[in-house]
Amino acid sequence: MKTTPIGFWVKTASLFLFRSGRSTVVLSLMVVAAVYTLIFLSSLAVGVNDAMIRNSVSLYSGHITGFSLSPWLKTDNLFVEGVVGVLKRISIPGILTYEGNIETVTLIGVNPSAELKRTAIWKKIIAGKYLQATEQAILLSQPLAERLKVKYGDVLYFSTGFEKNNLQLKLSGIYKTGIDQLDRGIAFCPLAEIADMHKIWSATIFLNEGVEPESVIAEYRRRLADTYHFKSWKELMPDLRQLIDLEYLSMGIVTVLVFGVVSLGIACAFVIFILKNLREYGIMKAMGVTTGEMTFLIVVEVVLMNLAAT
């Protein structure tokens, strides 16, 4: 004597589920809610970290910074797969003076229109406006402007120590980022103003979402001379990396805990569902249904319900 075919049990399980509609719907909704909660939590963890990275790199630093790049290297040479933008910057240390007030700064020459497209320093301006390529202007942080006692429209002088390099710059705007590294000792001016003073430049590179900086750096190493140095945001902002690692760990723990609680909840709900039908299973057993067939019927019921919920 053979056992009954699988199709019969699938049909029986479907009838059981269909005719105990309310329990099936409630249980299916429970599974749906649980699965969505887990998806939401995982997405939240990934989304929060992505947003943190995006906000940090888009403010100023980019995903990768290339140092000590020679004048012969063009920005176009740095466009490899995954790169969406390359900003050229020239940094010169010097002295800023205004009516007897002196501050040492690193003056960074930038391409204003390109910076506006890729970075978010302009969003941090609290007085005046961002630089324009045609203006002989300077952008200062609020602490620096306070120490120099300058206000929007004042004219400052920048010197590298050599008389011939004296630059007259009008204060176009004052920014405040709240980040110590950017608010102290840095000033910005259009690239054209200092292009003749210093030829070695640095590159700020922006990547497509999901592209790992390490793979792009490896590509640069393969293509370009060893004298060029490239660092990812992870190396340049180790504190941010630690924060993100910590965030991943804590969200991971929360997700595992939620997963455990949700799984237990669903398992209990299924056990209750099975216990509710215990009488039916008992009657079937008395009619000669084998333990294997009974187990199969219960498994099919649970699978069908999960399929419906999915």
């Binding site: 009838l15 059981f16 005719r19 057993k285 009619m287 084998t290």
Partner: peptide
């Protein structure tokens, strides 16, 4: 179980029909 399903038939005190069928 296979012997029961072929050879036995039960009538219980309260019918015990399968309620979803």
């Amino acid at each position: 179980s296979l012997f029961q399903r072929k050879n036995f038939g039960f009538v219980f005190q309260h019918g015990n029909l399968l309620s979803y069928l």
